[in-house]
């Protein structure tokens, strides 16, 4: 990524445009909104992006890092193209989502929270996506797979690119 302060990539320009258009320069209370937008643009929040935001909003990067790592929605590492999210909300848990989680870890050869090196898959546990009627549930990107049994796992993995 380009050197600090000289970012010319379209992503940085888009983020800069968002901050300017919304009148957020120097507005420290807008941090979380800007981080959401930045993650939307970049897919994750690397150090360079945090430094860029720090400069624009006039917030120490250490504070931004504190905020980014506080909230589970923000990632400092890139995610895979196929993001598997296993719901471990209570309704899914009592209907056996822990077994689904184990099976996914076995089949993908990954642990929860990991991303494969080729950026093909990421696997994470999430807390309640609110589709309790379909429990247990796995999300792949935005597609919901519900009423799952362990034997369905391979089918779901095979359905992804």
């Amino acid at each position: 990524m380009a050197e600090m302060g000289k970012q010319k990539s379209p992503e940085f320009e888009e983020l800069d445009g968002f901050i300017k258009k919304s009148g957020l320069e120097g507005k420290q209370s807008a941090l979380i909104a800007v981080l959401h937008q930045a993650q939307h643009i970049f897919g994750y929040l690397p150090k360079e992006v945090m430094m860029f935001i720090g400069k624009k909003l006039q917030i120490p990067v250490a504070k931004i890092y504190g905020v980014v790592t506080f909230y589970s929605f923000f990632n400092t590492e890139p995610k895979g193209r196929n993001q598997f999210k296993v719901c471990l909300g209570t309704a899914c848990f009592v209907r056996g989502s822990d077994k689904i989680a184990d099976a996914l870890q076995r089949q993908l050869g990954m642990k929860m929270g990991e991303t494969s090196e080729d950026l093909r898959y990421s696997l994470e546990a999430v807390r309640c996506v609110g589709a309790c009627g379909l429990a247990p549930v796995v999300l792949v990107n935005d597609k919901v797979y519900g009423r799952l049994l362990v034997k369905d796992i391979n089918k779901i993995i095979d359905a992804q690119e």
Partner: peptide, 8 residues
């Protein structure tokens, strides 16, 4: 609107 970011 203010978005949360996944913190219970």
């Amino acid at each position: 609107l203010q978005y949360g970011a996944g913190a219970f």
